[in-house]
Amino acid sequence: MVVSTPAVAMRGGSVAIGGRPVLRAVDVAVAPGELVAVLGPNGSGKSTMVKAMTGLLPLTSGEVHLLGTPLSAFHDWKRVGFVPQRASAASGVPASVWEVVASGRLTRRRLLRPLGRADRRAIDDALDTVGLAHRRHDGVSHLSGGQQQRVLIARALAGEPDLFFLDEPTAGVDAANQLALADALGVLKRRGATLVLVAHELGPLRPLVDRAVVLRDGRVVHDGAPPLDLDPQHAHHHGPHHEPADHHHDHTPHVASPLEHP
């Protein structure tokens, strides 16, 4: 067996939010081309782990390597595609589907240069992959929640990365859109991309998953074949599909003073 450098490696990764330990000495490695699902109930640290892997949250101890490079020295962000957890792809000003997807091309664009032919081709390809090419001129806020998730995936695709982090792409997405999502992820996997996917439940994504990492209370409790069924009590007691959009509030009690650091 050939030992290859893992695409993502977290060793002894711990994260504290507001002084409270949320992720506790987690060891996870993802091989190139692997699709790993990160599962667990709300508040188990799934999103926190992905945020620590992408540098959005600092580690209190431990280390993360992306594509063989320590995170602090990693600058090759065009190889990384990130789909953050958010309820909607809309913002305060209208934006078309094409514009949101095109913003994913930023990793490869030089300052003050217009989009080149390769950029436009990558954007078109990303829209085709998620099956939204026909909606490119529509405003994103006019799309359904599931379609907006597909727009966010297309945005990550547009940068042509080979390592993807997807934070709850299936949360609040109806069955038809989950199938469309599974198709898009299947295309990525066949192209050889590495995928780290945070999910509440796998649904139609199950056949694509090579390995599952199950977190509970900030620790890895399972690392191997995807479990057949999550403990229904844990999978469902927070209501169907909807994770709170404001995940800051998961771990830290509120402090009611205006200048307090969270």
């Binding site: 945020k51 992408t54 540098g55 959005l56 600058h75 962000w77 065009k78 990384v80 990130f82 953050p84 958010r86 913002s91 305060g92 934006a95 514009e99 949101v100 913003s103 994913g104 930023l106 990793t107 945005r155 990550a156 940068g159 982090f165």
Partner: peptide, 15 residues
């Protein structure tokens, strides 16, 4: 645009 639209995404994009 990318920054105002999605700060986390912009950060991971290396902006």
């Amino acid at each position: 645009f990318a920054l105002a639209h999605d700060q986390d995404f912009a950060r991971v994009a290396g902006l």
